[in-house]
């Protein structure tokens, strides 16, 4: 293990490390800690500039109720779910199939099409913006969660296919060959042999795509407007304009917006990291 395991070092180093760890952690998360603290402050604290001292009162319930009662934040959150969940299902299913096709079959164009998926995944959003907005308008899906989800499904399919293809490629190919020689059809091979083995990949991609889409801001801006269809990221931005210097409300809103992906991350940590670090080890 590198660096040298702390247990093998001198007592001084060990104690120093023990002490440094929480200090570093607090320092690293200072901005977030500050937000969490501010979200429970009272308006009086904010106006008197008491941002960093001890809160004069804990307004946890008041502030969080206030943002839900006086703003459409609940609606924004609901919209985010309505975009995110179909995207996860759509992108993961499409990429399971596409990844299977790329990994299992030899056909002309295989590598070419696969590289197209990879390359498309890296393009700057701005080169897609005008045509995608037009397409969404002409489908009558502008300013709907459907329009947003359709684009996300298509775009995320690129990354997910790369992931799925490499995952299936690493499975033992003999399984498929054995099934074929038994006369099992290709669809049954996909459904009954490969798909059950893909569970970890599906889990990893689901949490990853959930977080990516939940946090998307650019496309929400381009394809939606107004509280009926806007997800929380874009919503938070417009609320920020309304709230002006009401930092306790901005903070509470930020916390609410950040909560679902954070929970997702903590519940599915192992899968999340497996997805994110794909390719980081040989």
């Amino acid at each position: 293990m590198f660096p040298t395991p702390i247990a093998k070092t001198r007592t001084v180093t060990r104690l120093a490390y023990r002490a440094a760890l929480p200090v570093a952690l607090v320092f690293w998360l200072l901005p977030l800690i500050a937000v969490a603290l501010t979200s429970v402050r009272s308006m009086a604290d904010i106006t008197s500039g008491n941002y960093w001292g001890v809160p004069t009162s804990i307004n946890f319930v008041e502030n969080y109720t206030a943002i839900f009662e006086s703003t459409p934040i609940g609606r924004y959150i609901f919209n985010s779910f309505r975009v995110t969940i179909p995207t996860v299902i759509g992108a993961v299913s499409l990429s399971c199939m596409a990844g299977f096709a790329f990994a299992v079959y030899r056909f002309r164009l295989n590598l070419l099409l696969f590289f197209m998926f990879i390359a498309g995944n890296f393009v700057p959003f701005q080169i897609l913006m005008v045509p995608v907005r037009d397409l969404t308008l002409s489908l009558g899906a502008y300013n709907t969660v459907t329009g947003l989800a359709l684009f996300h499904i298509a775009f995320q399919t690129g990354f997910c296919t790369l992931f799925m293809r490499n995952f299936i490629k690493a499975l033992p190919f003999e399984l498929i060959e054995a099934a074929r020689s038994e006369g099992v059809s290709e669809f049954r091979i996909f459904w009954f042999i490969v798909l059950p083995l893909m569970k970890p990949a599906i889990a990893a991609l689901s949490v990853l795509v959930f977080t990516f889409i939940w946090n998307d801001y650019f496309w929400a801006l381009v394809l939606t407007q107004g509280a009926e269809s806007q997800p929380i990221t874009a919503g938070l931005y417009s609320l920020n304009g309304q709230w002006l210097a009401a930092w306790h409300l901005v903070s509470a809103g930020s916390i609410v917006a950040a909560l679902p992906p954070v929970l997702m991350f903590f519940l599915m940590q192992r899968h999340f990291i497996a997805g994110l670090t794909l390719g980081a080890v040989k």
Partner: peptide
């Protein structure tokens, strides 16, 4: 392979590849 590929490829072409050229 083409049947498995069709839905993903269709979406990706329509929403990602063609728009690049349109832009």
């Amino acid at each position: 392979p083409w049947l498995f590929l069709a839905p993903g490829l269709f979406m990706f072409l329509v929403y990602v590849i063609f728009p690049i050229f349109q832009s």
